[in-house]
Design a protein around this nucleic acid. Structure first.
Lengths: 218, 218
DNA sequence: CTAGATTAGATAGCGCTACTATCGAAAGTC
DNA sequence: GACTTTCGATAGTAGCGCTATCTAATCTAG
């Protein structure tokens, strides 16, 4: 298949494909001459993964790292997961206070040695941002978060297909990265549903009903 | 307080503060003359929120919308949540297949009318990206996700402080937006812990132990 | 009262990202 | 042999989040 056909089938412009080639996201096709290369279904599938990553908010550089982990997986799935996480972690500069994060994780019996320091730093950063905004997550809510992520992680890990290494790699890397937007949007839906229930929104009597509990004069 | 003092106390450069003023993120100080304005603690707190939002990956434009919702909250908390969500939703172009998303939400008895169409579109987009990458979330895992987000949303909504409208606004808007990075990083920690357990990582015998279950020849 | 610092407001520039456009030389196609 | 396609390189673009510079007005210390 030539580049124009690959473009037609994938819906990605020739210019963008060339860009991904240059950036090392897409491997070169088999060169059949100085001005011709041959692409196959693997390139087509790879383009799908690239577009999915980029549209999920992953940068070119991070996508390159994720794809590198897919192409050249560490021997152990555990290291693979670490590589996938490292690839998409927000790159932080500036000092962080890790104590709060470690205390939080200790509530679940998660000791800091059992996972990458960068991942813990991500928790610390998120906590710091909440703090800077003057927002405090109630303890009960935080417990629900901790419980929820543990359930999710357990379910995800239980679902890793053991039959084929390639499938396991795909599952771990993409499942970790591409599920993030899904979770966030599902949470938004659930919040709106729960909010509708809590404040009893019913199209006509919405304002009166939902206004009442808030507008208590101080 | 003058702008330089505000800068010192917040750790944000004068140039950046001016930029936020221009962009409408930070309200002007009280003008005391043609070349002097007076800032107070509200500006300082606001700067904290601004930095927290920007460092959480929210764009200037989205932060402006979030802050507008904070400043000028819709009467009902439900609408407020919608405004906060709308402000940070990935702005999508291109057609989406909503059917899969609606079917998914129907599993929880969440009908599409009960939440904003844009939020459902976000779910559809996430599903589409997973699909384009050739990744399928197992049904059991998806059920765990749905259950988890419902638990989280319920806990969050139960925690809304009803005593003060301002606190409720803060809670809903910032809780929705700033908790997102926290959840994602907690999930990464949980995944690494679960992966360590699943593949029995123990620093020395890691490779042999964790390699075995994967390298089963087909 | 004056020298120097500070400020508001305006404008311009910068470094980065994800493309997009153009071009010449080589090669394939009708 | 005319026309199209491709490769590879290079340059340009639009947007983002600042950052730097400048002017004119004003404040502040001595």
């Amino acid at each position: 298949m030539r580049i124009s056909e690959l473009s037609d089938r994938s819906g990605v412009s020739v210019a963008s494909i060339k860009y991904y080639l240059r950036e090392g996201l897409l491997p070169e096709g088999a060169r059949s001459s100085a001005t011709q290369a041959d692409y196959d279904e693997r390139h087509e599938r790879r383009l799908g993964v690239i577009r999915a990553l980029l549209d999920s908010g992953v940068s070119i550089a991070d996508a390159r790292a994720v794809l590198a982990a897919l192409d050249d997986p560490p021997a152990s799935p555990h290291d693979l997961l670490g590589a996938a996480h490292a690839a998409v972690l927000p790159h932080v500069e500036g000092e962080l206070d890790l104590a709060a994060a470690e205390a939080l994780l200790a509530r679940m019996g998660w000791t800091e040695g059992a996972c990458d320091a960068d991942v813990v730093a991500g928790v610390a950063r998120a906590l710091q941002n909440l703090d800077r905004a003057g927002f405090t997550v109630p303890d009960e809510t935080m417990d629900v978060y901790l419980d929820a992520v543990e359930r999710m992680a357990t379910a995800e890990l239980a679902g890793v297909p053991l039959g084929s290494p390639e499938d396991a790699v795909r599952y771990v890397v993409l499942g970790s990265v591409l599920v993030e937007p899904l979770l966030l949007s599902l949470r938004r839906v659930a919040e709106q549903i729960a909010s509708g229930r809590r404040f009893d929104v019913s199209t006509d009597a919405a304002d009166e009903a939902s206004d009442e509990p808030l507008r208590r004069p101080t």
